[in-house]
Design a protein around this nucleic acid. Structure first.
Length: 129
DNA sequence: CGCCTGACGAAAC
DNA sequence: GGTTTCGCCAGGC
């Protein structure tokens, strides 16, 4: 913490607002909110969108604060590269995640998104970052 | 101040 | 092709 990371440069390039750190969480939430209904994306895709593709973990970490976010964050639309609902256990009721996905037209089988590649929503392309 | 953990990903075996 | 390990970066203790 004593020393700022180079990552700040990447984020700064994307969001020259002069802010970072906590803003990283905000960015993740922002992208997550833009996920169309009935579509899903991966942590890595969001990370790549933010310029931290190597740090897909950070995206998941940011989601850790999704409950802390004021606005509703459709974290249920975010799954891992495998299309598996890895974070379903982090929801209030774990079943709520796949339930929401099914409700939106996303087929979920055994904690795994069916036709994941088909309904995959890439923020990098859609948002053209 | 240092070590461990973590909702991932890609490479290695 | 499935399973296991390492790597990334940041936050919590």
């Amino acid at each position: 913490m004593a020393v700022k990371k180079k990552s700040s440069e990447k984020l700064k390039a994307l969001k020259p607002s002069g802010k970072r750190d906590e803003n990283f969480f905000q960015l993740v939430f922002e992208v997550a909110r833009q996920i169309p209904k009935g579509r899903v994306t991966s942590y890595g895709a969001i990370a790549a969108c933010l310029g931290a593709k190597s740090s897909a973990r950070m995206v998941g970490w940011a989601m850790n604060g999704c409950h802390n976010a004021k606005l509703n964050v459709p974290a249920h639309r975010v799954v891992n590269r495998n299309g598996m609902l890895t974070g379903k256990f982090h929801f209030s009721p774990p079943e709520k995640m796949e339930r929401l996905l099914k409700k939106e037209g996303v087929k979920v089988k055994n904690d795994q998104v069916q036709d994941f590649k088909k309904i995959f929503w890439d923020p990098v392309e859609e948002l053209s970052f």
